[in-house]
Design a binder for these strands. Sequence first.
DNA 1: CCTGGACATGAGAATCATTATCAGGTGGCC
DNA 2: GGCCACCTGATAATGATTCTCATGTCCAGG
Lengths: 134, 134
Amino acid sequence: MNTEPAVAITARRASRQRTAVSAYLTRRTTFASAQEIHAALRESGEPVGLATVYRALQAMVEDGELDALRTDDGETVYRRCGTSHHHHLVCRECGRTVEVEAPDVERWATAVAAQHGFGDVVHTLEIFGVCDRH
Amino acid sequence: MNTEPAVAITARRASRQRTAVSAYLTRRTTFASAQEIHAALRESGEPVGLATVYRALQAMVEDGELDALRTDDGETVYRRCGTSHHHHLVCRECGRTVEVEAPDVERWATAVAAQHGFGDVVHTLEIFGVCDRH
DNA sequence: CCTGGACATGAGAATCATTATCAGGTGGCC
DNA sequence: GGCCACCTGATAATGATTCTCATGTCCAGG
Ligand SMILES: [Mn+2]
Ligand SMILES: [Mn+2]
Ligand SMILES: [Zn+2]
Ligand SMILES: [Zn+2]
């Protein structure tokens, strides 16, 4: 009989590059794009190939270590976030980000979907504004 | 003295092409991408340049005639929508879309932003699921 | 420790949606 | 009809992301 898991658990291997990307996002508190991370690491003397940055970010998102969101100018940005479901309040000026929870909204989203006969529901919710440091 | 408005009011001129794009989105009930619209119009024998499709969509969004949203595979899709503020419940399988209003969520978003000292707030909220025709 | 081989890296090419160019067309007020 | 600001569309450019593939390197087993 087959004792293998249906989907192989992707074994990640340690490397200087992945560590560098991960460490960068630990230091950083705002969302950052792959390009930005690539430039910053190169700057700081620990160069990592751009493709590798993309791969590292992708892996970390899959592993639930990072949240990703697409800016309206088409870049995907990443941030180390808490593991429980939450949304973001982001400053357009400085990028300052607050994680917010919204149980009422979660309930509302589920309920309105059910009312219209929709199942298997997910939602996206982000709030953008200007923080009080401006 | 200067009697001109600070920003010129963009005068839109009528054209077969704009009419075709507009009409297509009136017929259609689900979100559609520029590429899709371009192909459909060519198919139906009223060809419109791709750049023109993009320009028409852009203008209609500016004029508040269309809602636009970015799919997670990076395409922007457009839909003729109601003019009052609302959000979307979209079927992943067939694209069926329901416009939903959520005054509680609006209030919550404003309140949570204010609590954290954020002003000039906007938010995005979309719900995706699978509708009951599947 | 050693080693095989699966996994990772990175330079560069490819992809693909979108935007910019620019030469030629046209709607609409006079 | 004529002017001309605006519009069109073929094509090139852009830019983020992904793919390729030859080369490097973890690390589980031995
Ligand atoms: Mn987060
Ligand atoms: Mn809408
Ligand atoms: Zn700020
Ligand atoms: Zn459906």
